Amino acid sequence: MEFPDSPCTVLIVDDDPFGIIQLQILLKDSGYELITASDGASAIEIVSRQQPDIILLDIIMPNMDGYETCQRLKENEGPEGIPIIFLSGLHSTEEKINAFEAGGVDYITKPFSEKEVLIRLRTHLTLHRVNKRLVHELENRDEELQNKESKVQDANTALKVLLSAIEEEKKELAERVQFKAEKLILPKVRELSEERDAEKQEALLLEIEHVFQKLTKPFVPGGIELGKALSPTELQIVNLIKQGKSSKEISEICNISVSTIASHRKTIRKKLNITNRKVNLYNYLSSMD
């Protein structure tokens, strides 16, 4: 069993001066720092001012016995607690059960073995230090989780704002496209349906296709042919790249992992026949307008 590195403070609570002296001699020789109290009230007052690492507590004492003392100490302690070992001349099973129910971690009967006292002290001090470390780690982890949760909430809020702005932009764009389609394309379509001359029909068709390409450029950079070559997801990614969005931003908008975005970018470059790795995809797409 590994012994704690720094000196540990032991509070001895016993109304028998001889019992205190016997423990003082034993524990001082073993490197412990000691505090003593002759009754329960004094022990409680001492702990309120200076918390020991562990308490050795007698049961039979005047005014307040060891059980009540232990219960009152446990009422005011923090999450780490102070291990309390009962050290008594009472040997019955009932007394031991009462000691554990009051909050004790161990029970040593008098007359005690010096080696047993030292081993049990060392064991419970080591366990207590491990428990304190775990409590601190859990507190730190809770704080980290709270910070991460706060960041996630902030990211979600920002994402909602971004998605709302995108939806508004799409709505506005769709309205503009619909207005221009009704103004520029529908009249040509009606004219085409009434035209009987083949050459004029061909000219009208070319004109309609030209207007259609202009209207679809915000949705399909590169025109209709590129729209046929790319999947809907790839078209969305191309449009976002053209807007100057980074892979991380595109990942958040499309709800796709960054690694998947990278895979789509490779596919897009392949479909666009961009073999030179030095060619920037954003610059290439922008040049297609």
Rank of each mutant, 00 (worst) to 15 (best):
K115F: 10
S231G: 10
L163K: 15
A99E: 04
H91D: 12
P79E: 14
L34M: 07
Q153I: 12
L204F: 06
V189S: 06
V130H: 13
S286E: 08
H91Q: 13
L56V: 03
K170Y: 00
A43G: 02
Q146D: 12
A43C: 07
H136R: 15
C8D: 01
A203Y: 09
F179L: 07
E75N: 10
I46Q: 02
I208V: 10
T267K: 14
S286C: 09
K96S: 08
L204K: 06
R122T: 11
K28Y: 09
R269W: 06
Y282E: 13
M1Q: 12
K132I: 06
T260L: 11
L159D: 15
Q236L: 08
N76M: 11
R129M: 06
A262Y: 12
L162N: 15
V152R: 11
Q213E: 15
P62C: 01
R120N: 02
T216N: 09
D142K: 15
I35H: 03
E114R: 10
M288E: 10
I256D: 05
A102M: 03
G222N: 04
N63S: 09
P83Y: 04
L204N: 07
L23D: 00
R277H: 09
I208L: 02
Q178H: 08
I237T: 05
E252H: 15
I35C: 04
P62T: 01
K217R: 13
H136D: 14
Q24N: 12
L121Q: 03
K96P: 03
H264W: 06
V130P: 00
I82G: 02
L184K: 05
K242C: 09
P232A: 11
A181M: 05
L138H: 13
N280Y: 04
S259P: 05
I35M: 15
D58W: 00
G223K: 04
E94D: 12
E168W: 00
A37R: 00
D15M: 00
K151H: 13
E144V: 10
I25A: 10
Q146Y: 10
S48G: 10
C254A: 12
V189D: 07
I55M: 07
L11Q: 03
G81M: 08
S48D: 11
N140W: 10
I35E: 02
D39N: 15
A99L: 04
Q201F: 06
E2Q: 09
N63T: 09
L205T: 13
V47Q: 00
D154Q: 14
I108M: 05
A203S: 14
T93D: 05
E169W: 01
N156R: 14
L90D: 01
L163N: 14
P187M: 11
L138E: 12
